[in-house]
Write a protein that binds this DNA or RNA. Structure first.
Lengths: 130, 130
DNA sequence: CGGTATCCTCCCAGATACTG
DNA sequence: CAGTATCTGGGAGGATACCG
């Protein structure tokens, strides 16, 4: 009797996220934010410098990149390493925890990329008889 | 020689998402939006009516719920069924495609919920020597 | 190079009111 | 019940300038 597993899948227990008070929502917000998603994916390729990330992630500004990296660092997903050199050299790496979330985020992004044709096809469909 | 697989994991090919022109970003935006995430998760429990979703998802307004459902319907993730009754009765179901994304989204949300202690613990850590 | 500070703008999203 | 319409404030996020 897998009460727990069943309960989870039926949505009975797993659902704290659905409650407005659930702290997960905040973390989720950082991770699923416009630039958060892309930073996590970009860092899956290994340690990267600031300018490297800015170049990799199309359209991101200095401001938003820095802000996003700070949030992810606070959450413990990204490790910031300042080499204390002149000219400045700072690089960013996923922590073990960061690797785990990044894996999920990437899986989602990959699924979307892989199924774009299916999605686009549906979007242009004439509304069928309901 | 798994050139493709290797290329994907090294970040060489998988990276259209990182390009500002990638259409995936739009879909990703819908799916990872504040309410999009929660709607997908809520609908994993099976077909639900409008009011049911509003009750399940803490803090959502009529306006945002309707708007989110419309977007997800356009993308082909949600099927809207209007029973054409009085009083009105409309229910929402995940399409097969919707089930697939929802699974990824739920995996992410579950990971966060399951690792909240780890995350919170890190957040209150004093900055270690780097 | 790797940021921060400031200003400014637009759109997300909440509140309220109304409808079939 | 299941929405839409309208108004509005706040925050996300871009542009620019500056700094160690």
């Amino acid at each position: 009797m897998t009460t727990l597993s069943e309960a989870i899948h039926s949505g009975a227990l797993r659902g704290n996220v659905l409650a407005s008070t659930c702290p997960s929502r905040d973390i989720l917000k950082h991770v699923t934010s416009r630039w958060g998603v892309l930073v996590l994916i970009a860092l899956q390729g290994g340690t990267k410098r600031f300018a490297e990330l800015r170049r990799l992630i199309g359209g991101v500004s200095d401001r938003m990149l820095a802000q996003t990296l700070q949030l992810l660092e606070e959450d413990g997903f990204v490790l910031r390493h300042d080499h204390q050199e002149v000219p400045p050299r700072v690089d960013y790496t996923l922590t073990p925890m960061g690797e785990e979330v990044a894996e999920h985020v990437r899986a989602l992004a990959d699924w979307i990329e892989g199924n774009l044709p299916r999605i686009m096809a549906h979007q242009s469909e004439p509304a069928e008889t309901v």
